[in-house]
C-alpha cells in the first residue's frame, strides 16, 4: 500500500480517467498477442484509410456525380480520370467515394441499431430468466429461421430506399446474434458475487442491467459490433447488386458492381476491380479489428 495521494485530485479526475481508459484500450490493442497485435493494427490502418478516402477525398478530388454526360462514357483510366468513367460518364474514383460513404454509413448505423436492440433484449431476457427468458428467446429462434434477405427485399421495395431506411431495415433484422451473445454472457454474469452484492444492496433490475451486466458484457458486444459492420456492408452490397439499393443520384458499392457486371465482356475492367477490391478491403479491415479485439479481451479475462 503506497501512501495516500492528495484527495483533491480525485474529484476532478473524471476526464483524466476517460482519457486513461482510452489509452489503455489502445495499448492493449497494440500489445496484444504477437500476431493479433499487428493484425489489429493492419485492420485499424486499413479502415481509417478507407474512411479518410471516402469522407475527406471529395474535398481534394471533387467530381460531378449528379449530371449525366454520355459523351464521356466508358473512358479508360487517364490523367484526367485516374480510374476512368462509367456508362453515365461519372468519374469512377469520385463514384467510389460517393458509394463508399453510403456503404460505410449504412454499415455502421445498422450495426449500432442491431447492437443496441440486441444488447437490451439479451440482457433483459438473461436477467429475467424463467418463462420470460424462454418466450423471448423462442421469438429470437423464430426470427432466425425467417430468410432475412427475402424480407429485406420485400420491405425495401415497399419503402423508398434511402441510406437511413436501409440501415434501419438491416439493423432491425440483425440484432438476433448480439441478443443471443449478450444473453449467454448475462446468464453467467448474473450469478457472480458482485451482481449478488448489488442485489443485496437493493439494486433494481434496470440498475443491474445498466450498471453491471451490460458494462461487463461490453467486451463481447464491442467485438460483435465490428463483425456486424462488416456483415451490414456486405448485405448492402448484395441489395445494391440485386438492384434494391440506393436510387439515383445516390449510389452504393453494390449498385456500382452490378452496373459494371453488365459490361464485363466489353473489357471495361475499371468498372469492376476497384469497387470489388474496396469492398473486400473494408470487410477484411473490420473483421481483422474484431478478431484482434476478441484476442485482447479474451486474454484479459484469463489473466
Amino acid at each position: 500500500m503506497s501512501a495516500g495521494a492528495d484527495s483533491g485530485q480525485v474529484v476532478g479526475a473524471a476526464e483524466v480517467l476517460a482519457g486513461r481508459r482510452r489509452v489503455e484500450l489502445l495499448r492493449r490493442l497494440r500489445t496484444g498477442s504477437p500476431f493479433g497485435g499487428t493484425i489489429g493494427l493492419v485492420g485499424v490502418v486499413l479502415a481509417l484509410a478507407i474512411v479518410a478516402v471516402c469522407f475527406l477525398g471529395p474535398l481534394i478530388y471533387s467530381t460531378n456525380q449528379v449530371d449525366v454526360d454520355p459523351l464521356k462514357a466508358f473512358l479508360p483510366p487517364s490523367g484526367e480520370h485516374p480510374l476512368g468513367t462509367d456508362s453515365q460518364g461519372f468519374d469512377v474514383l469520385g463514384r467510389l467515394m460517393e458509394g463508399g460513404r453510403a456503404s460505410l454509413q449504412i454499415g455502421v448505423f445498422a450495426a449500432l441499431v442491431a447492437t443496441v436492440i440486441g444488447t437490451l433484449y439479451g440482457a433483459t431476457a438473461g436477467l429475467a430468466g424463467g418463462i420470460v427468458d424462454a418466450v423471448m428467446m423462442r421469438f429470437v429462434d423464430v426470427m432466425m429461421s425467417v430468410p432475412f434477405l427475402f424480407v429485406v427485399l420485400i420491405v425495401s421495395t415497399k419503402f423508398n430506399s434511402s441510406a437511413w431506411s436501409l440501415s434501419l431495415i438491416l439493423g432491425l433484422f440483425s440484432w438476433l446474434i448480439p441478443a443471443r451473445l449478450v444473453r449467454a454472457e448475462v446468464l453467467s454474469l448474473k450469478t457472480r458475487d458482485y451482481v449478488l452484492a448489488a442485489r443485496s444492496m437493493g439494486a433494481s433490475g434496470p440498475s443491474l442491467v445498466f450498471r453491471h451486466l451490460i458494462p461487463n458484457s461490453l467486451g463481447v458486444v464491442v467485438v460483435n459490433i465490428t463483425f456486424q459492420v462488416a456483415d451490414a456492408i456486405l448485405a448492402v452490397a448484395t441489395l445494391g447488386f440485386l438492384g434494391f439499393g440506393l436510387s439515383y443520384p445516390h449510389t452504393d458499392w453494390g449498385g456500382q458492381l452490378s452496373a459494371g457486371v453488365n459490361y464485363l465482356l466489353s473489357g471495361y475492367w475499371w468498372l469492376i476491380y476497384p469497387v470489388g477490391l474496396c469492398l473486400v478491403a473494408v470487410v477484411l479491415a473490420f473483421n481483422l479489428i474484431g478478431e484482434a479485439l476478441r484476442d485482447t479481451l479474451d486474454r484479459r479475462r484469463t489473466l
Partner: peptide, 26 residues
C-alpha cells in the same frame, strides 16, 4: 452483506470509489 471471495464480489469494471458509492447511490 460482506461476501466471501474478494475477487468475485467487486465489479471488475468499476473503480473503488464507484464500488463503495453504489449502495449510497441506490
Amino acid at each position: 452483506m460482506m461476501f466471501q471471495d474478494p475477487y468475485a464480489s467487486l465489479d471488475p469494471r468499476l473503480r473503488v470509489a464507484a464500488i463503495i458509492r453504489e449502495p449510497l447511490r441506490l
